[in-house]
């Protein structure tokens, strides 16, 4: 069971976990990404490619399902203008055992970061700037390639 949502509004982590809970779930791992409070950063605006986003995330989640025995995956990604402290993304994974849940959660985040068509623009001191992709994110995704 894969649930994917792209939305402007906030999400409730506890409610998302409750929805995910299958009968034989033994482990739920979640990751929440937030807008860091740093320096003069006043806001982060997320843009995406609507026709492609859900398709690409579904592909990534499907890939995770073939690698680990998962009981459920929920991915919520926010778009629009977010403020420091706001939540950006939630990945929640249910499995029978913890290793599958932990690893699939990390895998999903690494691939979301490098494959899902989202772009961040920062506002600092009244000026806007597009966030550059990081090589470290590519390396993080690369570590799953031979597994």
């Amino acid at each position: 069971m894969i649930a994917i949502r792209i939305q402007t509004g906030d999400f409730d982590i506890a409610a998302e976990i409750a929805k995910l809970d299958a009968e034989n779930t033994g482990a739920v791992a979640t990751f929440t990404g937030k807008v860091r409070k740093e320096g003069d950063l006043t806001a982060l605006t997320l843009e995406h490619y609507p026709q492609m986003t859900e398709r690409e995330i579904a592909r990534i989640a499907g890939d995770a399902q073939t690698r680990w025995p998962l009981l459920g995956v929920t991915i919520v990604h926010r778009i629009g203008r977010l403020l420091p402290g706001d939540k950006i993304v939630l990945v929640a994974v249910a499995a029978q055992h913890r290793h599958a849940a932990f690893e699939a959660c990390a895998f999903l985040m690494d691939y979301l970061k490098t494959r899902a068509p989202f772009w961040k623009q920062e506002e600092r001191g009244g000026k806007t700037q597009w966030v550059e992709a990081r090589e470290s994110d590519d390396r993080a995704a690369g570590r799953w390639r031979d597994k």
């Binding site: 990404g33 997320l46 995406h48 490619y49 026709q51 492609m52 690409e56 990604h77 950006i88 993304v89 985040m109 979301l112 970061k113 490098t114 494959r115 899902a116 068509p117 989202f118 772009w119 961040k120 597009w130 966030v131 550059e132 992709a133």
Partner: peptide, 24 residues
């Protein structure tokens, strides 16, 4: 679909150009 520069094109295609993604 993420594609390469040598991908063949047809008139019915949707082609999107963008910088490396920075979501998550």
């Amino acid at each position: 679909d993420h594609s390469g520069w040598d991908t063949p094109l047809r008139d019915s295609d949707e082609v999107a150009f963008f910088p490396p993604v920075t979501g998550g």
